[in-house]
Amino acid sequence: MAVFDLALCTLILLAALAAVAGPGLFRAVVFFVVYGVLIALAWVRLGAPDVALAEAAIGAGLTGVLLLGAVGRLSRAGADEPLTSRIDWPVALAAGLVGAMLVWAVLSLAPGPGLAPAVAEILPQTGVENPVTAVLLNLRAWDTLLESVVLLAALIGLWPLARGGAWQAAAGPVHHALPDGVLAGFGRLLPPVALLVGVYLVWAGAYQPGGAFQGGTVLAAAGVLCVMAGLVRAPGMAAPLWRLALVAGPGLFLALGVAGMAFGGFLLFPTALAKGMILAIEMVLTLSIAVTLALMVLGPPEGGGAQ
């Protein structure tokens, strides 16, 4: 498999180079989509299937839609193809420097098992069987809590770009499709299956690779497809229930973290209750992540009526 790994690394570098330095926006975006598939393979080879799952869902599903939509918009505005293959030297220098530092950091890593034994030792007290979930939602819950807040902040940052300042209107442009066409047909069939897969990934997260982020991304993709197929109107931010869906995950996480203070400290989950608490956080967080990601991909409101 050494040949395979070497070939995979070469392809990743080629795809990355073509995406960054190749001429033409559209080509760059397609190479970025391809790069996502290759990176997912690399994560599996590195024994990190959790990351591979997230990459497959985000890279293959959502970023493609987002970036291709952006290219289409630039082209309609007559502003596409501003990219020349001219290299921006200061940026290249800075990126090269960071790259060299990363290479140095990797090479200077002491060989050894890392933190895995320490996690394995404490795993029974965390309430879950998947060590990655244990780290994300118990041992380093701070990180995950802040990440979920960052996601929300990104969406709030996107909202002021609403056309005409109507940020409470339905997200994105008003999508439409031939009601009995191919696109609508696909949009009628796939989302229920995607919903099942998304919930499955959340359930699986307690035992094996999976979790709120991966599941939420798949659910977001299902929602985006429903809207893009013209079957469901995108939600608007005037609706209190949608706002609740956005903040419920980080909110519950924060509340249970504060409750943990009764047991010794912020975000400290007592072993007996940890499983239930983590499960509750995961489920509600999945919903929030799904709604946040879907609204980000659909884009700021463009003046269509809200739901």
């Binding site: 191919v182 696109l183 047909g185 696909f186 069939l189 796939l190």
Partner: peptide
């Protein structure tokens, strides 16, 4: 298969 049949047509 579902993806292929859809993508081809679209």
């Amino acid at each position: 298969l579902l993806a292929a049949g859809t993508v081809a047509q679209l």
